[in-house]
Design a protein around this nucleic acid. Structure first.
Length: 689
DNA sequence: TTTAGTAACTTTTTT
DNA sequence: AGTTACTAAA
C-alpha cells in the first residue's frame, strides 16, 4: 500500500503516520492534533489492512484511564470489536507486571511476589533511615526512585554521591533493595527495571517477548524515563530484525521530569534509530484561535527542542477571561456560580465544564462551593478509591494471603482491626525476625520467640497466623469450576471472620462507618466481578493473587461509575490528554503556578523547573475547546493564615492585552446579587455561538 | 501495653 | 484543614 493514499477522515500527515510501516516512526503531535486518533487508527490499520494478529500489538499509555479509553475507541473502530480485547493496551507498569508474572523466576522472585505502594515503601524508608521526618523520608524516596529509573544501582549511587544527604540516601537505597527482596516484593519502579534486567541478561526470554509483541505504540513519549526507553529498545531491537514501533509525543507537554522523565528521549530516538521517520502534526482540531494564540505565546518563552507551529481552522472564538479574586473562598464560590449561570443560560451539559488546578489540596475548597450550588462533579487525579484506608486494609489481607513474607501487609493486617497486638509486641517480633533473617509471619512460629513474648502477647499473633494459613489453604484450593480459586467465597469468608463491619462501626461514627462499609462492599464486588473475567465475562479469569497485583496499580480512579453529566475537576497533570468545551483554570498565582520549590536550589535547576511549570500552564490552556477562564486570588489561606499572592507570570505571557482578549476585572457578587443576576440571565435567550 | 484524646505542625505533580 | 506527635487513662 502506498503511503500517499490518505486514510478516510484524516489529514495528510495523520494519514502518513497511520500507514507508515517501513520502520520506526516518531509522531510529533501538538496539543489537540489528533494523536490518539492516529494511534487507534494505526492499530485498526495493522489488524485489518496488514494482517497483524491483535495479540502481537501493544499500545502503551501513562494512566489506566487512558488505556481503558483507548481500548474502547479501538473496539468501536474495528469491524470485529472483540479483537480489541486481545490487544495489549496498558500502562508501562501493567506490561511490567504481565512480564514479571510469567518470568518471576528469571529475576529471582517467587511466583507470588507482592507489589508495594508508595506508602509501604515510605514506612520502609522511615525505618531504615531512622527518622520520622516526612520531608526527609520523601527526599530519600524520590532519590531512590530516580536512581532506579536511571538504572543506577546502590553501589554506583554511593560512589557518585556528592554530599552527606545523597550518601545517606544511597545507604538507605542499599538496604531498601535488600529488604524488598527479603519480602519477595517489588515497588513501582521495579516493574519496569526488572524486565529490563531480565531482557538484558536472558536472550531466549527476550526473543520470546519480541515474538509475542511485534508492534509497539507509545503514547506521551515525552514523559518516558531512561528505564522505560530501555525496555522499549530491548523489545524492538534484535539481530536481523527491523525495529517496528510508533512513538507519539510533544516536547511542549513534558511535565514529568520530576519523576525521572527526560524529553531528551525524543532526540535520542533519532540518534538510536537513524532511519526514524519523523512526522509532525500541527493542525489543531480542538481549540479556538484565541486560545491557541495564548498557548503559543506562553510556550514561546521556552527553548524549543523541535520547531513546530500549531494552527487551527476554528474561528477566533470568545475572549479569554482573566479574573482576580479577593480570596480563595471567593474564587471557589465565583467559579461555581459562573458555571451554574452558564449551564442554565447556554443549556450546556455539566460535563462540558472542567475546573483545573495545580495541587490536589485546591480541590477541597472548590468541592465545597460546588456542593453549595448543587452542582454535580467528579474528581480525577488525586487520591483514589484504592488509597482509602478501608480498602487498603482489605488489600493488606489479600497481599498477606498471597505472600506471607510481605511484612508491610502483615503489620497492617495484624493490627487492623485491633486484636491485642500493639507496638511493643511488634517491636519484639521485628527484632527477632531481623536476627533470624525471616519474615514476621515466620517468626511467630519460630522456636525461641516464646522466650521473648509472654503468652498474653504471643497468643493473638498465633491465632492470627493460623487464621491466615487456613484461609490461604482454602484460597488456593481449586474451585468448583476447575481452575482458579473461588475468589468470591474467600472474600466473603474473610470479611466475616475479621468482623470488619463491626470494627468500622466501633471506630467511626454512624455516617462515616456506613460509607466506609459501602466502599468495602463496592470494592469486594468489583473484585469478584474481575475474578469471573470482567463485566462481559470475556476477559481472563483471575485468582486472588492476580487480582491483588492488579489492584496495586489501580491508583487512578477508573471512569466506570463516574457520573456522566458532572463538572470535571482535575489536577493539571491528570488533565493531560483530555479536552473540555469550557475550562476554568484556577489559582494562577506565583508560588502555585509556577509552584515554588526549594529556594536554595541551584539557579539552573530553578530555571528548568519554571520551564516545566510553563509547560503545565500550556497543557492547561490547551485543554479548552471553546472558552477559557483564568482566575487568581489576591489572598489565599495557607497553613492557617491568609497570605498575600501575586498573579502568575504566565498570565502576562499569554499577551492577552495585545488584542486577543479582554482582561476582565474582578467582579464579586453577594448571594443576593447572584440570585438577581441568575434570574436576569435565565430570562435572556440562549446566545448563538 | 494499648488506646483515646489533645496539642502542634504542615500542603506539588503520579505509576 | 487535616494529619501526626505527645500525653494521660484503662
Amino acid at each position: 500500500m502506498s503511503t500517499n493514499v490518505p486514510v478516510f477522515g484524516l489529514n495528510l500527515p495523520q494519514s502518513q503516520a497511520v500507514t507508515y510501516l517501513d520502520g520506526p516512526c516518531l509522531v510529533l503531535a501538538g496539543a489537540g492534533s489528533g494523536k490518539t486518533r492516529v494511534i487507534t487508527q494505526k492499530i485498526a490499520h495493522l489488524i485489518e489492512d496488514r494482517g497483524y494478529d491483535p495479540r502481537t500489538i501493544a499500545a502503551l499509555t501513562f494512566t489506566n484511564k487512558a488505556a481503558l479509553e483507548m481500548q474502547e475507541r479501538i473496539a468501536k473502530l474495528l469491524k470485529q470489536p472483540k479483537q480489541a480485547k486481545q490487544l495489549t493496551v496498558s500502562t508501562f507498569h501493567s506490561l511490567g507486571v504481565k512480564i514479571l508474572r510469567q518470568e518471576a523466576h528469571g529475576v529471582g522472585l517467587k511466583d507470588r511476589f507482592s507489589i508495594m505502594d508508595a506508602d509501604d515503601c515510605g514506612s520502609l524508608v522511615q525505618d531504615m533511615a531512622l527518622t520520622t521526618d516526612k520531608q526527609v523520608v520523601r527526599r530519600i524516596q524520590t532519590a531512590i526512585s530516580l536512581w532506579k529509573n536511571g538504572l543506577v544501582d546502590p553501589l554506583a549511587a554511593l560512589n557518585q554521591a556528592k554530599d552527606e544527604d545523597e550518601a545517606q540516601s544511597a545507604r538507605v537505597y542499599a538496604s531498601y533493595v535488600a529488604t524488598l527482596s527479603a519480602y519477595q516484593a517489588v515497588d513501582f519502579d521495579d516493574l519496569i527495571r526488572l524486565p529490563v534486567e531480565l531482557f538484558r541478561n536472558n536472550d531466549p526470554i527476550r526473543d520470546k517477548w519480541q515474538r509475542r509483541l511485534r508492534y509497539l505504540l507509545m503514547d506521551e513519549y515525552q514523559d518516558t524515563n531512561t528505564c522505560q526507553y530501555e525496555l522499549v529498545k530491548l523489545l524492538v531491537t534484535g539481530i536481523g530484525k527491523k525495529p517496528m514501533f510508533t512513538a507519539v509525543g510533544d516536547d511542549d507537554q513534558a511535565i514529568y521530569a520530576w519523576r525521572g522523565a527526560s524529553v531528551e528521549n525524543l532526540k535520542t530516538l533519532q540518534t538510536d534509530f537513524p532511519d526514524l521517520q519523523v512526522i509532525k502534526l500541527e493542525q489543531n482540531y480542538r481549540s479556538t484561535t484565541r486560545i491557541l494564540q495564548a498557548a503559543n505565546a506562553v510556550i514561546g518563552n521556552n527553548p524549543k527542542l523541535f520547531e513546530k507551529s500549531l494552527w487551527s481552522e476554528h474561528g477566533l472564538g470568545e475572549p479569554i477571561q482573566v479574573t482576580s479574586m479577593p480570596t480563595d473562598d471567593a474564587e471557589a464560590d465565583q467559579v461555581a456560580m459562573l458555571i451554574s449561570v452558564d449551564h442554565f443560560t447556554r443549556k450546556n451539559k455539566w460535563s462540558d465544564y472542567a475546573i483545573l488546578y495545580r495541587g490536589n489540596h485546591q480541590a477541597r475548597i472548590i468541592e465545597q462551593a460546588l456542593r453549595k450550588e448543587r452542582i454535580p462533579y467528579t474528581i480525577s487525579g488525586g487520591q483514589s478509591f484504592f488509597d482509602k484506608a478501608e480498602i487498603k486494609d482489605i488489600i493488606s489481607y489479600l497481599r498477606l494471603l498471597a505472600n506471607t513474607d510481605d511484612d508491610p501487609a502483615f503489620i497492617r493486617a495484624v493490627t487492623t482491626p485491633r486484636r491485642g497486638v500493639g507496638q511493643s509486641t511488634m517491636e519484639t517480633l521485628g527484632t527477632f525476625s531481623g536476627q533470624w533473617q525471616c519474615s514476621l509471619f515466620e517468626a511467630v512460629f519460630k522456636g525461641g520467640i516464646e522466650g521473648l513474648l509472654p503468652d498474653r502477647q504471643l497468643n493473638p499473633l498465633r491465632d492470627f497466623c493460623n487464621f491466615i494459613n487456613n484461609l490461604e489453604a482454602r484460597a488456593s484450593r481449586p474451585g468448583p469450576s476447575g481452575s482458579g480459586d473461588n475468589a468470591a467465597q474467600v472474600l466473603d469468608d474473610l470479611l466475616e471472620a475479621i468482623n470488619y463491619e463491626n470494627y468500622l462501626y466501633d471506630m467511626f461514627d454512624e455516617r462515616a462507618a456506613q460509607s466506609k462499609w459501602q466502599n468495602v462492599l463496592e470494592f469486594v464486588n468489583w473484585l469478584k466481578d474481575r475474578g469471573r473475567g470482567g463485566k462481559d465475562r470475556d476477559g481472563e479469569e483471575k485468582n486472588v493473587l492476580e487480582l491483588t497485583q492488579m489492584v496495586a496499580l489501580m491508583s487512578m480512579l477508573e471512569g466506570q461509575d463516574e457520573d456522566p453529566d458532572a463538572v470535571r475537576m482535575s489536577t493539571l497533570h491528570a488533565s493531560k490528554g483530555l479536552e473540555y468545551p469550557h475550562v476554568f483554570l484556577v489559582g494562577c498565582e506565583e508560588g502555585i503556578l509556577p509552584h515554588k520549590g526549594d529556594a536554595d536550589a541551584p539557579a539552573e535547576s530553578i530555571a528548568a523547573r519554571v520551564q516545566e511549570e510553563r509547560r503545565l500552564m500550556y497543557v492547561g490552556i490547551t485543554r479548552a475547546q471553546r472558552t477559557l477562564h483564568i482566575t487568581w486570588c489576591k489572598k489565599r489561606k495557607r497553613a492557617g493564615e491568609q497570605v498575600h499572592c501575586d498573579p502568575s507570570r504566565f498570565i502576562k505571557e499569554m499577551k492577552l492585552d495585545e488584542g486577543t482578549a479582554v482582561p476582565l476585572e474582578s467582579e464579586v457578587l453577594t448571594p443576593k446579587e447572584r440570585l438577581a443576576r441568575m434570574k436576569e440571565l435565565l430570562a435572556t435567550p440562549k446566545p448563538t455561538v
